[in-house]
Structure formats: C-alpha cells, structure tokens
Computed example of a mutant assay.
Amino acid sequence: MNIKITDKAVFWFENEMALEPGDGVHFYGKVYGNTEVHDGFSVGMNAEKPEGNLLGKKEINGITYFTSKEDDWFFNRYDLVVDFDDKKEEPIYHFNSSE
C-alpha cells in the first residue's frame, strides 16, 4: 500500500497539528461516514509516532504519515491519496486501486 500526500495537505498537517520532525500521523478506518469506496466507514487520523507493523508509510519533512497492519481491512487493495479541500479547509482522502 502506498501513501501520497499533496503539498497543500502536508502544509495543513504541519500547521494545524503543530507537527515537528519525528512526529507521525496515523490514518485508519473508523465507523460512520463514507469514502469513495466504503459505505459506513471513513478515514480517521491521529497524531502519534509509528510503532509495530506498518501497512504503508510516507515520510515528508521528517514526519511519518502511516497506516498500520490492523487497518488492512480498510485499506486492502487501495493506495491512499491525501489532498486538501480548499472549500472545506480540511484534508480529503482518495482511494486508488493498487491492483
């Protein structure tokens, strides 16, 4: 699984979450909401350092954006693209087939 994060999204995460090199952002599946490929589930995220078995990760400016093996049920068969929605002023998540 690959993770891609646009420059606008990186800027938002670094500023809104006050992230510094060595920090991490964990993306995971959560109950409620919808994505382009999930009904009843949406993307959640927490600021936390990566630990254990990772499913996918991307390091930018010393910050690790990642998913864990426990979230394979949610990200299975997809790559995650994190972008920024200018109108809502928040991250937006896209899923591309990895097959």
Rank of each mutant, 00 (worst) to 15 (best):
N2D: 11
T6Q: 04
T6D: 08
D7E: 15
K8Y: 06
W12Y: 15
W12A: 01
W12L: 06
F13Q: 05
F13C: 06
N15R: 14
L19W: 07
P21L: 11
G22C: 09
G22A: 12
D23E: 09
D23M: 07
G24F: 10
K30N: 04
V31Q: 14
G33P: 05
G33C: 04
G33L: 05
G33H: 11
G33Q: 04
N34Q: 12
N34G: 01
T35A: 11
T35C: 02
E36D: 12
H38T: 08
D39P: 00
G40A: 11
G40P: 01
G40I: 11
S42A: 13
S42Q: 10
G44T: 12
M45R: 11
M45I: 03
M45T: 02
N46L: 02
N46Y: 10
A47D: 06
K49G: 08
P50D: 07
G52V: 05
N53Y: 11
L54E: 08
L55T: 04
G56T: 05
G56K: 04
K58M: 11
I60A: 05
I60V: 15
N61C: 07
N61S: 15
N61F: 04
I63E: 01
I63K: 02
T64R: 10
Y65R: 08
S68D: 05
K69G: 00
K69Y: 06
K69P: 00
D72T: 01
W73H: 06
N76H: 11
R77D: 14
R77Q: 14
R77L: 06
Y78W: 15
D79L: 07
V81T: 13
V81I: 15
F84N: 00
D85W: 09
D85L: 10
D86L: 04
K87S: 11
P91Y: 07
I92D: 04
I92M: 08
I92P: 00
Y93V: 11
H94G: 02
H94F: 14
H94Q: 12
F95E: 09
N96W: 02
N96S: 11
N96F: 06
S97V: 11
E99Q: 11
